[in-house]
Nucleic acid binder design. Structure first.
Lengths: 163, 163
DNA sequence: TATTGTTATACTCTATAACTATA
DNA sequence: TATAGTTATAGAGTATAACAATA
């Protein structure tokens, strides 16, 4: 359900206008600038594509991590996604209210919850991941498998301080 | 001036915790997910580093583009940065109030402004860009020049639909 | 004394609509 | 009729603080 708007100066859209000026500025070789711009495009495209499944980039990521046995704690979700634990509460609340994940008491620590995907959550994730892959494919048009793998590998180093 | 907080579960910090779970989830080869995570790290680190110059990632980018003669219109700034024109107003207002950029009437179109960096703005940009480069360097620790250039090249394709 | 999940709040960022002055 | 800049506002995301239950 994207917006019913004309999208004149569409915010999260790809720019083709200012590339020449960027190239003449100090931003030309600035990895952070290009990272931020590319991510804005990715999140925008991702959100638009995932609404068809009632998800957004964030909730998709939570669901994806909750689908890995034996299920993360909310604390781990926060650390992995770079969020504050208080933000995870709302995300899990939403997914739980729709029957996509469950909070199970951690048997080894009664303070903690283990967040696990339900059968329905797993099915939705399977569908949504197909959409997600297709969206990446479309936005990456012209990038071959080698380049895509290289991109992900380099991004992981920044995001997770690892190769 | 970063926050005076303990940073227990520091939000925009690099995750080293959940990498193993990510690797076992559908997010493992998801370029969008890693793009979003890496950008969050980059924007966070960038903002923290640039506050020393009274700038943030956004205002730094505006200043950088305004420093390229003959200066962009606000419309062009919006398109290049993927922002709505209404957001550019506040960014330019802030920089102008601090004497870093000027709004000059476009001689060929009385509706439009041309945003140009002042002498002070140019000097601040020069200082800030040194900080920015050092920050990228630090976060990219372990990435060689080739890899960094490859990363930027691939990000440009996503951000600007070009190579 | 420290940690997990939670609630609350303020601030930034994003998205949309509408107005004005020009073209 | 369309476009540049502006104002306004609501929603999403980010950042901090504090509290109850548990370790």
């Amino acid at each position: 359900m994207p917006s019913p708007r004309a999208r004149d100066a569409a915010p999260s859209a790809r720019a083709s206008v200012g590339a020449a000026r960027v190239a003449r500025s100090v931003l030309d070789d600035d990895a952070f600038f290009h990272l931020a711009r590319a991510a804005a495009v990715a999140i925008g495209e991702g959100n638009a594509a995932l609404t068809e499944h009632g998800l957004r980039s964030r909730s998709y990521s939570v669901l994806a991590l909750a689908a890995v046995e034996p299920g993360p704690s909310q604390r781990e979700l926060a650390a992995t996604l770079g969020l504050d634990p208080s933000q995870v509460v709302a995300l899990v609340d939403d997914l739980q209210s729709r029957g996509l994940v469950e909070r199970r008491p951690d048997p080894s620590d009664r303070r903690a919850n283990v967040v696990v995907a339900t059968e329905a959550g797993g099915q939705l994730l399977a569908d949504a991941s197909v959409t997600a892959r297709a969206t990446v494919e479309r936005v990456h048009a012209g990038m071959n498998d080698d380049e895509r793998a290289t991109l992900v590998r380099l991004l992981k180093r920044i995001a997770f301080a690892a190769d």
